[in-house]
Nucleic acid binder design. Structure first.
Lengths: 222, 222
DNA sequence: TACTGAAAAAAGCTATCACAAATTACCCCC
DNA sequence: GGGGGTAATTTGTGATAGCTTTTTTCAGTA
């Protein structure tokens, strides 16, 4: 199934981990549109392996709210509607704001330089129109920041929100011209250099709002 | 294995769902202390079923951060330390505050009466010294409130935190006399009746802090 | 007594099989 | 031509077996 991009199969990775990584990646990038129907056996065939590891991978993704396991024997990529979307974005604001705040004391010049480089790579991805790279770099940017705090239980939850937004977010990205979007990461970086938490947090919230909330709601309501 | 309390096996439930429910319950109630080592085959034997559904159940719990899957072939109930504990409680404060706020407009007199009844049942559980019932009723109280909002993606995340705190929380509960603890639920209920979000949220935060943070940190730091 | 290495035991992983349930296809009848 | 019922197919589920890897045990040696 060409809908599920391949991912490098690291040595030592079990088949189950490989299946999980591949499905997760496909969902994060929006390769599977909302509502896509899936079957265990279909996925097994698509990935050329047996149903057993697929079932474990799908159970994991189900626990992360990335796949709906309907009572009748059908799996599907969750649908999106305006109410759910709004709750997801509001939760993103709360959770990522919290994570940023708890990570802030761990900021260093080395890390800020690293984040600056990631942001530059994003500019390049936008210029190339490479939406997959843009998505991955954006997530890497945020994840690097939140992960500075070595004990951050919010990180898996934030990734769960990304998984839930992934399929729909791709449709949002396709609905407007990303080259004209304001890059709030630059404001965040400036605030980081000044070690100003309040300003950084506001820039982060603007980033989340501009990046998905407004365009997403427009798509869902109109 | 008597360490894993049985749970009712509803009709129509698959073996995998049953295994998940039972392990989840055991962890939530603290029946498995932090650091407990587990094996797939051992769990399968303890629950009298084959390894296949156990593996799926454990993968789900791993995705919810309730079980550590170490690279070497060992599973264990996560350990607790002061840094992780503090992050978990802070995240609880943020997430449950958010969920309460998003649920608040859905409050009704009927629901408030229901919550009042649950709180009374908690008083009774405290009087009986029934810590399992106390834990379950407390979670039911919070879950009922947050779940009023029909689209609440924070709920699974809050339950994930409870799963992470469960094993240690039981040790906290055993470390002091619960009969002398202040019942912040009564303040929350009064604020709900007055439809005062600010006061309710403060009472909720006091509830979380008094219920675990202080006693927990005391236990971890000696 | 302590350490090393090999053998044995235990455990994880995944393909396969058998069974049951649900869905789909198809045919007959109206 | 449309609808209903039955058969065929598809699918989920869970036990099992074979293989591999890891861990444990135990002996032999220094």
């Amino acid at each position: 199934m060409s809908q599920i991009p391949d991912v490098p199969h690291d040595a030592g990775l079990t088949v189950q981990d490989y299946a999980y990584a591949r499905l997760r990646n496909a969902i994060l990038l929006g390769a599977l549109p909302p509502g896509t129907a899936l079957t265990f056996r279909g996925l097994a065939e698509a990935l050329s392996l047996s149903p057993t590891p697929i079932r474990e991978a799908v159970r994991r993704l189900h626990s992360e709210q990335a796949i709906d396991v309907l009572g009748n024997r059908r799996l599907q990529v969750p649908q999106m509607d305006a109410a759910r979307f709004e709750e997801l974005v509001r939760l993103r604001l709360t959770l990522e704001g919290h994570a940023a705040e708890r990570a802030f004391p761990w900021l260093s010049d080395v890390v800020i330089d690293e984040l600056t480089a990631t942001d530059l790579a994003m500019d390049s991805a936008v210029a190339r129109g490479d939406l997959d790279a843009l998505t991955q770099l954006n997530q890497a940017f945020h994840k690097r920041l939140y992960g500075l705090n070595p004990n951050q239980p919010a990180l898996p939850m934030i990734e769960s929100i990304w998984l839930q937004l992934g399929p729909f977010q791709r449709q949002v990205l396709n609905s407007y011209d990303v080259t004209i979007a304001k890059d709030h990461h630059k404001e965040m970086l400036a605030a980081m250099r000044a070690r100003d938490l309040t300003v950084m947090r506001r820039a982060l919230e603007d980033d989340i709002r501009d990046g998905s909330m407004d365009a997403g709601l427009r798509l869902l309501r109109g």
